[in-house]
Simulated scan of single mutants.
Amino acid sequence: MRSIPQAFQASLDSGATTLCWCWKIIRNDGVVLGFTEHDSDLYFDNLLWSAGVGLNPGIIESAIGFASNTGMATGALTQSGISADDIDRGKYDQAKIEIWRVDWQNTAQRVGIWSGEIGDITRKEHAFEAEITGQARKLNRTFGRVFSKQCDAELGDNHCTKDISSASFTFQANVSQILNVTQFSVASLNAPENDWFSAGTITWIDGQNAGQTARISQYFQSGAEDVFTLAALPVKPIAVGDAMSVAAGCNKSLDHCSGKFSNVLHFRGCPFMPGNDSLIAGPVPSR
């Protein structure tokens, strides 16, 4: 049960209140933003709560049990509030959100109403729409390991332990030609194999996507050019001359781990796990 301070309750009971709604967003990169529906900015909790920009949450539906509380939030895109560029770069993905009821004449009188996180967020030309969900949504996420024949580590992470920073696995290149929105070519990198970078990653060094990382869905060598296809649309359009760092890819098989990376001791798959055929197989008749 929510605890409401006595002075705050007295303000509610008076019938003539000076209350407003305030919303705090805590992004995963540590940036904290505050917004209010009040007609002027407020300052409390060491945070400036901006008026007239950013966020307008709608009705939040609550349910008994483990069902997740859900709602929608809309707002205008502004440079001082929630910007299109930050949304495109995923800075609001799974950001925490808190909703407060605050006395704007005495901000020490306030009560937390709801907390959750931002789910799916879509952007239009001048506005955005975001799904906001309660804490119960976390119960639908998969935690822990999933056992399969393929490795469940990411190449180069703490589980894989393989150092891919050497010149054998990481190359520098510049875009030489744009083929379509997700496909481009670079001057030949002289990779050891024709699929050396398939399932690898690209980290953009400069250009509009500087600092962003993208997954490579397809790679092949074509004469004096190497052609890359990204698994998803880039945040911003790719341009000729954009510099990037390209890391080799791993298909997560035992053969790749052993032959390509010599890292079989850290392979985290179960290659000899029985498959569905073993589950439905019947007895073999003797001869």
Rank of each mutant, 00 (worst) to 15 (best):
I118R: 05
Y43W: 01
R137S: 12
V175A: 08
N209E: 05
C151Q: 06
W196S: 08
A247H: 13
V53Q: 06
M244C: 11
R141H: 09
N276H: 13
R27D: 09
S166W: 00
G90K: 06
H159F: 12
H266F: 13
F261H: 06
T133P: 01
A127M: 12
C160Y: 12
I118S: 03
D277P: 00
S188A: 14
A7M: 04
H266R: 11
A214K: 01
P234V: 09
Q212I: 08
A76S: 14
F197L: 03
I280S: 14
F272Q: 12
Q183P: 00
S222Y: 04
A73S: 12
I59P: 02
N174V: 12
I216P: 04
G54M: 08
A232W: 09
D120M: 12
G116P: 08
F147N: 04
E193N: 07
R110A: 12
S40W: 00
G211N: 02
I87S: 06
H126N: 13
A199V: 02
I132T: 10
R123C: 10
G156S: 07
I132A: 09
M273S: 08
L48G: 01
A95W: 04
E154H: 08
L33K: 07
Y43L: 05
N106D: 14
Y219H: 01
E131F: 03
V235L: 02
I164K: 06
G90S: 10
Q9T: 06
L265I: 07
G54W: 02
N158W: 15
S278M: 07
M1G: 15
R215M: 05
F171P: 04
V53R: 01
W204Q: 00
S258I: 04
K162V: 15
A173G: 13
Q135L: 13
G119H: 11
G116T: 03
I118G: 04
A187H: 09
M1R: 07
A63V: 12
S222F: 06
N106I: 03
M1I: 12
T201F: 10
F35K: 03
N194G: 10
N46M: 05
W196K: 06
Q94A: 11
N190T: 14
W23V: 10
S14K: 01
R123L: 14
G65A: 07
G81S: 11
G207E: 01
G34S: 00
G269T: 04
F8V: 00
I64Q: 11
S198F: 10
A243K: 04
N263K: 09
